[in-house]
């Protein structure tokens, strides 16, 4: 799946471009530059890597080599609702792999991917820090403890309801004005 840049991301890329000039042209700055790009854009699109390579005057293949080596860099944009499934020890014991599979099947994507409409992404994480609630899933900042396959559907319903409610509030505000 290839994700084009949204207009918002293009803006962020421009902001990264101006930030780039503050870095000294030295190859030791490659990782800090990549980190700054990811901080700005939330992931590393090909264009950001090309900008970094151009600024430091090093081959793009080398930039890719470094960027793909480290787990901290991602190349797929996170969804609007990033879903994180804990696969830490306690959650693992409580069969969190089944929960992960449920999310994957429901969204039709694999772990580490994002849906085409950029709404959801599924990731695995190692320990969220609340093992008593295992197995645990995170949707954005909201935590869902004691997960079960039947709860997965409920989470999506809740997101949908919240979305519609905020839309209604939004339109009511507009009509009031």
């Amino acid at each position: 799946m290839v994700y084009g840049l949204t207009p918002e991301e293009k803006e962020k890329l421009e902001r990264f471009k101006t930030k780039l000039s503050t870095f000294e042209k030295n190859r030791k700055n490659l990782i800090p530059i990549l980190q700054s790009a990811q901080q700005e854009i939330a992931y590393l699109p090909g264009q950001a890597l090309e900008l970094a390579a151009g600024h430091l005057d090093i081959p793009i293949s080398e930039v890719y080599g470094v960027a793909t080596f480290y787990n901290q860099f991602r190349f797929i944009p996170p969804g609007k609702y990033p879903i994180k499934i804990c696969l830490g020890t306690a959650c693992h014991i409580k069969s969190s792999d089944i929960i992960l599979e449920n999310f994957e099947r429901k969204l039709g994507i694999k772990e580490g991917q994002t849906t085409e409409d950029r709404q959801f992404s599924v990731e695995r994480v190692a320990c969220v820090g609340c093992c008593a609630l295992a197995p645990v899933a995170l949707v954005g900042d909201a935590l869902y403890g004691k997960m079960s396959p039947s709860k997965v559907e409920g989470i999506f319903t809740r997101i949908q309801v919240e979305k519609e409610m905020s839309l209604r509030v939004h339109s009511e505000n507009e009509s009031n004005q």
């Binding site: 090093i58 081959p59 793009i60 293949s61 080398e62 890719y64 080599g65 793909t68 080596f69």
Partner: peptide, 19 residues
């Protein structure tokens, strides 16, 4: 004078990436 192909990824996932 510079590589057009290079290593990417790491560990078992490492491969040769073509630019």
């Amino acid at each position: 004078g510079y590589p057009k192909i290079s290593f990417a990824g790491r560990g078992f996932g490492a491969f040769i990436r073509i630019d």
